[in-house]
């Protein structure tokens, strides 16, 4: 039976169709099965913890598996310091704007089929996911933050810190293959 999840921000109820809550292996499998995923990372990744590290460390690990990254906010330097060269530096609005366009891709190698949002402040991320929900019907979205994002196609169901870190660790393991 599908989980019923309340959006992380209680007031953020957009409509009757909300994200499919996912955790465990499903998250990793979704990313692994995507043909042209794109990882969009925001400023919260520099503040959120991932174990004794920062969320940006997880992003770097995931990026090293070959998922192209768009560095939004001021995350670029931190990614470079972790050995990752992002495919682009953009604002989150700019990358969301382009993701609406089915002819656009960050590297010119074909349209993206999965946008993975992580470490973007909740309200801003929610609005960007709303744009994609309404105007990028060719695209699926997933939020890797631990807060339930109703506007995504898939989202974590408001996980506790340790549960969430377990999911992220699993993602790294599975995607690395």
């Amino acid at each position: 039976m599908a989980m019923t999840v309340k959006p992380w921000q209680w007031g953020n109820v957009p409509g009757h169709e909300m994200a499919t809550p996912v955790k465990g292996d499903v998250v990793a499998k979704l990313i692994k099965s995507a043909k042209r995923p794109l990882l969009v990372v925001g400023g919260e990744a520099l503040r959120e913890k991932w174990g004794d590290k920062l969320l940006i460390d997880f992003v770097a690990e995931l990026a090293k598996t070959g998922v192209p990254v768009v560095a939004t906010a001021h995350t670029y330097r931190a990614l470079r310091e972790r050995g990752v060269e992002p495919a682009a530096i953009m604002t989150v609005a700019d990358v969301t704007n382009r993701l609406q366009d089915p002819s656009w891709s960050v590297d010119g190698k074909g349209v993206h089929d999965l946008a993975i949002f992580v470490g973007i402040s909740y309200q801003l991320q929610s609005q960007m996911l709303s744009t994609l929900k309404h105007f990028a019907t060719h695209l699926r979205t997933i939020s890797l933050d631990r807060y339930f994002h109703p506007n995504a196609t898939f989202s974590m169901p408001n996980l506790k810190q340790d549960e969430w870190e377990q999911v992220l660790n699993n993602v790294i393991q599975v995607v690395r293959g």
């Binding site: 400023g43 939004t72 604002t91 609005a93 801003l124 609005q127």
Partner: peptide, 13 residues
Amino acid sequence: IIALETMEECMVW
């Protein structure tokens, strides 16, 4: 008009 996430990004823009 554009919404940005962080102060650092805002200064560059």
